[in-house]
Amino acid sequence: MKRSIATWMHKRPQVRLAALLAAPTLWLVVAYLGALGALLVTAFFTIDSFTGNVIAKFNLGNFHDMLTDPAYRNVVLRTLGIAISVTLICAIFAIPMAFFMAKIAKPKNQKILVALVLTPLWASYLVKIYAWRTMLEPRTGVMDWILGPIGIHSPGFGGPAIIIGLSYLWLPYMILPIYAGLERLPNSLLDASGDLGARNFYTFRRVILPLIFPSLVAGSMFTFSLTLGDYITAQIIGGKLQMLGNVVYQNFSINLPFAATIATIPVAIMAIYLWLVRRTGALASL
C-alpha cells in the first residue's frame, strides 16, 4: 500500500509539487497577502463616530485628512529625516567595519568577527532599546559616566536618542550585505588601482564604492523600511517625539481605518524606493 502510493506519487511530479506548495501558498497568499489587502481596503473606510464601528463605505476622507493636516505632514517629514540619518550613520559605521572584516582581518578571525557582528542581530529588539534607556539616562546614565569626563554628554531622550537607538538596532543589517559584497570583490582590483597610482581614498571612491553599491542599497532597504514603521523606540527613548509608527499605534484602537491609511505611507515610500532602486539596476546585480 505504502509502496503503491510512493510509486503513484513518483509518476506525478505535478501532484508532488501541488502537495508541497498548497500549505505555504495558502498561508502566505491567502492569510498574509489577504490581510495586507484587507488593510489597504480598510484605509478607504470610515468609522461611526458614535459607536466606533467601522463603516464599510468607500471614500477618500482619510487620505484627504492625512495629506492636508500639517501635523501629519510634519510627522512624515520627521520620520523620513530620521530614516535618512539612521541609514547614513549605519553606512558610515558599516563600510569600514565590513571592509576590515572582509579584507584586513586574518581568515581565522574573519569568522569570529562575523559571528560577533551577527549575534546582536538576534538579541531582543526591546532589550536593545531598553539598554539605550539606561545608556542615555541624563546625568545618571552610562554614557555620561563613560564619556562625561571627555566632555561628551548624553543628548537625553528625544530625536537624537531615537537616531542613536535605531542606528544601533539596524547596524548589523547594513554590515552583513556590505561584507558579503566586499567578500566577492577580488583583491586584485584594489591592488591594480593602487599600482596605477590611486591613493586609498580615490580607490575607495572610484573602485570600491561603485562595486558595493548594490550591497549598500540592500542594507538601506532594511534600515529605511524598519525605521519607517518603528514606534517602540520613540516610546521608550524618544521623549515626547512622535514617529509615523506612533501615529499608527495610537489610531489603531480608536480609528482603525485611519491607522490603516497612515500605515500605507511606509509601504508606499518603500514601493517608491524599490522602484527607484530598480531603475538604477542595483537589484539585478544583488
Partner: peptide
C-alpha cells in the same frame, strides 16, 4: 520581516 512590524501587526489584527 522586511515590512515594518506595525504594518503586519495591524493587518493581521484587522483580519
Amino acid at each position: 520581516i522586511s515590512l515594518p512590524g506595525v504594518v503586519t501587526g495591524i493587518a493581521l489584527s484587522n483580519a
